[in-house]
């Protein structure tokens, strides 16, 4: 037997072994327990930071957090957020109407990241299929929830320091405004 044919013979041997090894692996998988989750009956619990249906939250005092700053709308890569800003008697801004088109939303979470007031937040509720595509356009009353969502102690106006909900200087990280006249020499 020449060297070359001996080599061929060895490769026949190792090839056969390799093929049979493949058969062994598929057989062992056949006998393994499937990893399938039977969806409508079994549901996996998504993690709290799962990105699905979007909500608008309220601050701990029960007021709407959203100040209609349009940052979420600007951040959204598919332009599916639209709103109209307005101002209350006391100077606090709010959205007159606020609309998210979930049929376009790609659940990227950029809106939630952009929001300075933690108003807009992602929730793990992923079951929002609808028969009619127009039902996926959520208005403000569909989006607004009663709770605070994830950051339940955060209140934008307590930190921002503009005198809307409290007099100037009454915020958490603020000191009282200085009366410049007292500084005179």
């Amino acid at each position: 037997m020449s060297v070359k044919s001996a080599f061929h013979f060895m490769s026949l041997f190792s090839d056969t072994k390799a093929i049979l090894g493949g058969f062994r692996i598929t057989l062992s998988h056949m006998l393994r327990k499937p990893v399938t989750i039977q969806y409508p009956e079994q549901k996996r619990t998504p993690s709290p930071r799962f990105r699905a249906r979007i909500v608008l939250t309220r601050d701990p005092d029960g007021d709407e957090r959203c100040v209609a700053c349009y940052l979420c709308s600007a951040a959204c890569p598919v332009d599916c957020i639209s709103m109209q800003s307005a101002e209350r008697e006391d100077g606090r801004r709010y959205a007159e109407w606020f609309r998210i088109n979930f049929s376009r939303c790609i659940f990227c979470g950029l809106c939630a990241e952009a929001c300075p007031t933690m108003a807009i937040q992602m929730t793990p509720d992923y079951e929002i299929c609808k028969r009619d595509i127009m039902d996926l356009v959520y208005e403000k009353e569909d989006l607004l929830i009663d709770g605070c969502g994830k950051d339940d102690s955060y209140n934008f106006y307590k930190h921002a320091g503009i005198g809307v909900t409290q007099p100037r200087g009454a915020g958490l990280e603020e000191s009282k405004p200085v009366d410049v006249r007292t500084l005179m020499p």
Binding site: T26, H29, M30, R32, P34, V35, T36, Q38
Partner: peptide, 10 residues
């Protein structure tokens, strides 16, 4: 069925 089992499905 069998192909599914091979691929760890049901």
């Amino acid at each position: 069925k069998i192909l599914a089992w091979v691929q760890d499905r049901k």
